[in-house]
């Protein structure tokens, strides 16, 4: 197992253990996503990060549900489970209870985790199992060929919503924060910062949700073009850095400012507004994280990076502690004593 540093010393990775390369984490199975799918970029970044942080193949477990993204475990030469639609968090919880030492990842999509698996998602997050959840959000059902998903925009026209979806979409990160997740972040599949966000989540201890904007180039191509096209992206996203003001724009001349009602406003720097007047990002501020999770295109630039992180005890460790303290109080397990507990009576021969 690799040594984990405290949450603020994340950059100091123990390089001496990094013996594996990204390609060592590739299984012998052909990757079968559609050519041009955003999943490829994510797969590559994950392989790079696990190699970089010194994870081992034998101690890594990738668990998925059902959907395009859920084929992911087949492409990692680690332990893996391609489970049931929506249930990956439950399998991951069991694996963690059985062996808290394993590095357990959940790979899921917007339909898998927010629709059929919504219940399991919120409960793994609130319990704070040390499980890293990468949610590939393409705002569409890809494997079933293009129905609207829980994150599809209102009015989305698909084969199952020919007159436009009348469902209100939800924000995965708002859900994660409300579910007491101890780490919440967002990245874009083709963005150069994806690797650093995955590295941050890999080093986090506790339940973590990373929303990854992922392009389904067959059924929802361009859903995030505002955040990926060279011409628009700098004006459409704002990169979060702990302790730094929220500045964005091609010329880095715009920022986010909180008005007297704690409502975010887009402002231009220079007209009497200085950098220090802007909203300063604090990864440990839950209400700020929630506020950021509500900022959406086109009204706002969409925040990218780590929204929120706290350190808290993990479920699997608390459970083990209960076992240890019970054994300490009552002595080593003794089957004979267990069977003979309570009122017994002897019948003599």
């Amino acid at each position: 197992m690799i040594q984990r540093d405290g949450i603020l010393e994340m950059t100091e990775t123990p390089t001496q253990l990094t013996v594996l390369k990204a390609r060592d984490f590739a299984s012998d199975q052909d990757v079968r996503w559609c050519p041009g799918c955003g999943d490829y970029a994510i797969l590559n970044q994950v392989r790079k990060v696990v190699a970089k942080i010194g994870a081992t193949k034998e101690n890594s477990v990738f668990v998925s549900g059902i959907g395009c993204s859920s084929r992911f475990p087949y492409y990692m030469d680690t332990y893996g489970m391609h489970s049931i639609h929506g249930r990956a968090p439950a399998f991951a919880s069991g694996i963690k209870m059985a062996n808290p030492e394993l590095d357990v990842w959940v790979i899921t999509g917007d339909g898998d985790s927010l629709s059929i698996g919504g219940n399991h998602l919120i409960h793994i997050l609130r319990r704070n199992f040390n499980v890293k959840i990468l949610m590939f959000n393409n705002r569409i059902y890809g494997l079933t060929k293009g129905q609207y998903s829980p994150t599809s925009e209102e009015g989305k026209r698909t084969k199952s919503s020919p007159m436009g979806a009348i469902d209100m979409p939800l924000s995965p990160l708002s859900v994660a924060l409300a579910a007491e997740s101890s780490f919440v972040a967002r990245a874009v599949d083709v963005d150069k910062n994806l690797g650093s966000v995955i590295e941050r989540v890999a080093m986090h201890e506790g339940s973590a949700l990373v929303e990854i904007y992922q392009d389904c180039n067959i059924f929802n191509h361009g859903a995030y073009s505002y955040a990926t096209d060279k011409d628009t992206k700098e004006d459409s996203v704002v990169r979060l850095e702990h302790g730094k003001p929220l500045i964005f724009g091609k010329d880095r001349d715009k920022g986010i400012w909180l008005d007297g009602n704690r409502k975010p406003r887009v402002v231009e720097l220079g007209h009497g507004i200085k950098e220090e007047d802007l909203l300063i990002h604090d990864e440990h501020d839950e209400s700020l994280a929630f506020l950021l999770s509500r900022m959406s295109h086109p009204e706002f630039p969409e925040p990218m990076g780590v929204f929120y992180q706290i350190k808290d005890k993990c479920y699997e460790d608390l459970l083990q502690e209960q076992v240890d303290s019970a054994i300490e109080a009552k002595g080593e397990p003794n089957l004979e004593a267990l069977l003979n507990a309570g009122e017994t009576f002897e019948v003599k021969a």
Binding site: V63, Y79, M81, S83, I84, R87, A90, F91, A92, S93, G94, I95, K96, M97, A98, N99, L102, H120
Partner: peptide
């Protein structure tokens, strides 16, 4: 599903 995860995990 968590019981199955336990089995996969070796317990």
């Amino acid at each position: 599903c968590s019981a199955i995860g336990v089995a996969f995990g070796g317990q």
